[in-house]
């Protein structure tokens, strides 16, 4: 039963991939090798699609793999496969997080937990800042153009930088603007300017 196998395999990915969506990659690679469900180049397609669609990357990858695997039983099978793989992926983390939440509630008032969080919060925001740098690099810089032309000035995406600055000003000026509105607006601007 291929759907049960999908669930179990993704359950183990969810259980062992620690450190966010991209940490699932090595597990997916070995899954592809053992099952023959997909190849290494399928994986790079999956990453590209997962990164350019909304939602957590790990979840997107699971849905995509599940669809490809289930598709042998048609579109409905593909959709079902996507659901099964995703549920497999998230089940272990839901269980673990609930257990951790219970423990946290018990030790919430311990001063040592508070001390650990003092350092941990700074690291947490540091990780978000580093993700921001990662997206900025993708948005503002084209390493392809850099290797093609060898010109730093050509590789910089000025339109993106300006759009980013304008959006940032909007956020600070008009605090009521919802992030969704800004995302939709920037998609429209991207299409209009052929960015």
């Amino acid at each position: 039963m291929i759907f049960l196998e999908l669930f179990i395999r993704f359950f183990f990915v969810g259980l062992f991939a620690i450190g966010g969506g991209l940490a699932t990659l090595p597990f997916l690679q070995s899954m592809g090798e053992t099952t023959g469900w997909f190849t290494a180049s399928d994986i790079s397609d999956m990453i590209a699609i997962s990164e350019s669609t909304p939602g957590p990357i790990g979840v997107n990858m699971a849905t995509y793999v599940g669809y490809q695997v289930g598709e042998i039983s048609g579109v409905a099978g593909g959709l079902f496969g996507g659901i099964v793989a995703t549920l497999g992926l998230i089940t272990p983390s839901v269980i673990v997080v609930i257990i951790v939440s219970k423990m946290l509630q018990r030790f919430k008032d311990s001063k040592y937990v508070e001390y650990a969080f003092y350092g941990l919060r700074a690291a947490s925001i540091g990780l978000v800042a580093s993700a921001c740098l990662g997206v900025a690099k993708l948005a503002f810089w084209s390493s392809e153009i850099m290797t093609e032309t060898g010109s730093v000035f050509a590789a910089v995406n000025y339109k993106s930088i300006i759009l980013s600055a304008v959006i940032f000003l909007c956020i600070t000026k008009f605090k009521k603007l919802h992030p969704i509105a800004l995302i939709l607006l920037s998609a429209v601007v991207g299409i209009a300017l052929k960015m």
Binding site: S52, A136, F168, L182, I183, A187, V189, M195
Partner: peptide, 24 residues
């Protein structure tokens, strides 16, 4: 799709940056 995503990425940079500042 590629154009739209270039735009969205630019917005995401600004959004995350402002969240980092606020929470930081």
């Amino acid at each position: 799709v590629q154009w739209a995503f270039s735009g969205v990425r630019a917005a995401v940079v600004a959004l995350i940056l402002s969240a980092v500042i606020k929470i930081g």
